[in-house]
Simulated assay, not measured.
Amino acid sequence: MAKSITRLGKPPEDSGFGAAVDPYANQLDKVGRRKRILRVWQTAYLGGLGKHVQFMQFGQPGLRPLIWLHSVDYPMAPPWGLCVDAADMGFSVVSVRRPGFGETSPVSTIAEEVRLLSDFLEEAEFENAVLIAEGTARRAGLRLAQASERIAFTLLARPAYAAPSFGSIEPWIRDLLIQTVQTDAGARLALTAISHFGRRSGHLSLYENFLKVESDTQFIHSQTRDLAEAWACVCALKPETFRRELRNLEPDPSLTPGALAGFPGIAVIGADTQAEWRTSFEAKSAELEIATAILPSGSLFALYQNAGALLQLIEDCA
């Protein structure tokens, strides 16, 4: 069950860390079901590690935790409407900014990230949680789920474990991604180029042109405030964090045939995922022996634009 984690941990006196903000996003009975409800980001201090984790919790204590780990491309909490729908179905969304994003402390390895996230779950005393790991969060999320008894079920969203090529991604974006994984200097240049494009053409244009999926574009223009916050978070990344994230797209030696047989989880993509990626996703998932599901629309933003189908899938499987 979910516990309120507004005052998780206590920082040292000289840390400069202020009092946590009480969440007011969970009082649905007081504000009306469909009015805009602000989601409040908070920062927890993990005393055992001396590190911070930034998170957003939506839903009254007592609901089943739905732990959400974002990908590098969209470091944002789910839309408020999805959070409301999740609460209606008995889930408390806990969106976690991963290491190096926002106010969450950076790490150097996957093992360090797993320990940081595991300590966060332990101090919050979550139980029977469902974990959603998107995109570049797949490697850390999968290892967290395998190591933590507090995770009961895992959804790997667009897990990026089987893309044989860059598909129809714009060549200049492809070149930036290749440059990023090679060196920290390459990552620094790539971040500078992406930020420059965002200032010149607008970050919404960058998101639109990444995959050129109409359903994703509709979502982008319906969530401009969230996209702006996500974009600001991306632009603030350190080159080493950016590089570490994109290296999660490289082949994972632990994902051998049958590696996920019996794993309590499912792999999910959107119906508008380009055909080449969808084919390789289905083939690799079959090789790993993990069940799959296709959400009705979308690619990059498939989870967010299919709230009903996503939550029903979790309720049915978890």
Rank of each mutant, 00 (worst) to 15 (best):
L311S: 09
L176F: 04
P12R: 06
D316N: 13
S222T: 11
R158M: 10
K35D: 07
G102Y: 13
G18P: 10
Q42I: 06
W68V: 14
D316Q: 13
V53L: 02
M76L: 12
P61L: 02
E113R: 08
I37Y: 00
D119E: 06
E123A: 04
A137S: 15
H221N: 13
D22L: 09
W41G: 01
V93K: 00
L144I: 00
E112I: 00
E13D: 12
G32D: 07
T273N: 09
D85R: 14
M89I: 03
Q182E: 12
V181K: 07
A137G: 12
G16S: 04
R64Y: 09
P257E: 08
G32E: 06
A2G: 10
S148T: 12
L142N: 14
F219A: 01
W172T: 14
A261Q: 10
P239C: 06
R98Y: 04
P264C: 01
T273I: 03
I266T: 12
L63I: 05
A267C: 07
L249T: 10
I37S: 03
T279G: 04
A140N: 07
L310M: 14
F17Q: 13
A157P: 02
P79L: 07
A286Y: 06
I151L: 12
F219L: 10
I178T: 12
R278D: 04
L117P: 01
V21R: 13
Q312L: 07
A129S: 14
A318N: 11
Y45T: 02
R247M: 05
T224Y: 08
A20V: 08
A147S: 15
P257N: 06
A302H: 12
A236H: 12
S299G: 00
A291M: 07
L237F: 00
E122F: 07
A160F: 06
L117M: 08
H203C: 02
H203W: 07
K10M: 12
P296C: 09
R36G: 05
V213E: 00
L176W: 00
I294T: 08
E103G: 06
L155P: 03
R33T: 10
R243V: 03
A162R: 03
A129D: 15
I5Q: 02
S118C: 08
E123R: 06
E112T: 01
I37V: 08
L288F: 12
P78A: 11
A309W: 05
P164S: 15
A291G: 09
A230G: 07
R97A: 08
I269L: 05
V53Y: 01
S201G: 01
G202V: 14
C233M: 11
S4K: 06
P264D: 10
A261F: 01
S71N: 07
L176S: 13
H52D: 03
A86I: 00
L288S: 00
A259S: 15
L131P: 03
R200E: 13
T183M: 07
S118K: 06
T183G: 04
T192Y: 15
L189I: 14
R278M: 07
Q146T: 10
F17V: 09
M1D: 09
F242T: 11
M89V: 05
I173E: 12
T292F: 05
S148P: 13
V268Q: 05
A163S: 01
L116Y: 03
G198L: 03
G59E: 14
